[in-house]
Design a protein around this nucleic acid. Structure first.
Lengths: 158, 158
DNA sequence: TTTTTTGCAAAACCTTTGCAGTTGG
DNA sequence: CCAACTGCAAAGGTTTTGCAAAAAA
């Protein structure tokens, strides 16, 4: 029930760069693994394993989902990939990077918003100060009512 | 993929009080539903549907898990119950209340800590001010390294 | 009596695993 | 060559659904 962050994030700027990092650890760049990396580089947003296996809807060849999961796990262990949960439903995967985005999600409309980590430094500071936790909002988002849903909710009450 | 909070939280102080609220909405207090409520009153911590179905390990009679899920959903719709996810694994259910606890979880050791909502009001204020979100950390916890794991992590680096 | 709810079985959904065969280095 | 990896199929864990029978109001 712990939340996996196997290694510190490793920012790769290309599939080749990622491949070098893998080889340095005795791991290989198989064609299936290459596809997973290509999909993650191609998608600029978090994607499901299913979507990667489907070749991002035609943009890339299809692969076996089980292999996709295995590769995502391997890449996450190394630190090249991370995953998160923005609500119910399948996990979402992205490339890890120096400046991993963090997330705010609306519990009512399901919209979500990615923000640069600095945007949350104040929040982090308050939490660190009070609880001694160093939080990151990249695995689970900050959940709440977004501005427009909060407005709607107020109207509903009247 | 939205996060269900069907109705505003409704604090019931007893099974009977809950029953009254249910009846007011044309819902019944069946024996299975009563057991779910009793389990939630008995457990002072968030519990899984499975644990409720198992009668909290002997403290109460067993019930069918499917009925437990259906009842939890019904009670959540009404606002008497809420659920959360502290990591991977099954959802955790609690009675809803005026002062719902919020959670901090350690991504490394899996420990979690419940805090009174006021403890997070500063954090909420910062987030509201910057993003217009009114957050609650009762569905997903604040994830980070707890103090002792953060310390360990530092040692590891040396 | 009427509508809600149950219990069981089955399916749905997401993810992991076993295994024999393939492939990257 | 040989360990790492694949594809497929099957299972695992969590949650939902269909349906005929039971029970609450």
């Amino acid at each position: 029930m712990t939340i996996a962050r196997h290694s510190p994030p490793l920012a790769a700027t290309s599939v080749e760069a990622a491949a070098a990092l893998l080889r340095a650890r005795g791991m290989r760049l198989s064609s299936a693994r290459r596809l997973v990396l290509e999909a993650l580089f191609a998608a600029q947003r978090p994607v499901t394993a299913e979507a990667i296996a489907a070749g991002l809807g035609g943009a890339l060849p299809e692969t076996d989902v089980a292999s996709v999961y295995r590769n995502l796990e391997a890449l996450e262990t190394v630190g090249l990939v991370r995953h998160m949960h923005l609500g119910h439903g399948p996990g979402l995967y992205t490339l890890a990077g120096e400046r991993d985005r963090e997330y705010l999600a609306c519990e009512r409309c399901g919209a979500y918003e990615a923000v640069a980590p600095e945007e949350l430094d104040d929040v982090r500071g308050v939490i660190r100060g009070r609880f001694g936790y160093e939080p990151r909002f990249s695995h689970f988002p900050i959940v709440g009512l977004c501005a427009s849903c909060a407005e709607l909710a107020e109207t509903d009450l009247q």
